[in-house]
Design a protein around this nucleic acid. Sequence first.
DNA 1: AAAATAAAGGACAAAAATGTCTTTTATTAA
DNA 2: TTAATAAAAGACATTTTTGTCCTTTATTTT
Lengths: 145, 145
Amino acid sequence: MAIFSKTCEYAMRAVFYVAQRSHEGYKVGIKEIAGHINSPEPFLAKILQQLSRDGVILSTKGPNGGFYFDAASLNRPLADVVTAVDGDEIFTGCGLGLTYCSESNPCPLHEEFKKVRNQLTHMLHTTTIGKFNLGLIKGKFTLNK
Amino acid sequence: MAIFSKTCEYAMRAVFYVAQRSHEGYKVGIKEIAGHINSPEPFLAKILQQLSRDGVILSTKGPNGGFYFDAASLNRPLADVVTAVDGDEIFTGCGLGLTYCSESNPCPLHEEFKKVRNQLTHMLHTTTIGKFNLGLIKGKFTLNK
DNA sequence: AAAATAAAGGACAAAAATGTCTTTTATTAA
DNA sequence: TTAATAAAAGACATTTTTGTCCTTTATTTT
Ligand code: FES
Ligand code: FES
């Protein structure tokens, strides 16, 4: 089991790809995105629909339409993507699966787990959607295989 | 979605409870464990079977039998429990779901994700199964609800 | 040795996550 | 205004995770 769900992984990969293409001045269709991040096209469509409903990603229909980000959206944190598709359990939930994570009634792992969870939270809040655009354009990163 | 699977959460809760009872000198049956960690009994049985096959937990059949840890087992890292039920993907996998996490061909999130993953790994390797025995006996921690 | 106990094992069931397909709606280009 | 394009939406299918039940095996007590 991975840290993030498949849904969330595809969402983040797609968002990084669309961000790069937006930086380059293009909108991108589902087919192009799915091809470049190596994800099942119809499944990815569902995920991007969700992101679109939540206002995380922008889209327009019709010819020359597709998904894209504006300047403001490129500065949103990656955490918004995670929350939109997976909710906030990963940011607030108990590591041992108790109903609530609680300071006053903690599980044994609470103190140790909280540190890890806080670092993950901090990382996802300080990493913006557009952070890797230049690196992606320069070919420094991979989003498929 | 939580960091760990339900299976893994139940496994860790069970292990902490059995460790405490072992420290107190008892073996514990499935029914008692499930009751104290609030988990479905037959499902937990499967999980503990797996841990037993992997040699993470000890068990004996028959009257006065049950699950327990010896002194050596109490010093094993919690990471062994996670690996036994969920594999090592959480310790080695790519945060964006690429087939392999690679230094030479990294995903955009690689550097940032690696830090979080390393801290999680470190935490699970330095936390022993028996670490919380005294705290549990003193009632400082909760394992149900 | 017999009966009681408790884990081990296997088959099955429900729920959730993941993946697919078809139709509808909105937008643009011609 | 029509045709083409592309996302939105909804129904459906598969796989994995989670959960249940019943039988078997090993151990201990009587
Ligand atoms: S109570 Fe378990 S992590 Fe906080
Ligand atoms: S390649 Fe993605 S985390 Fe290392």
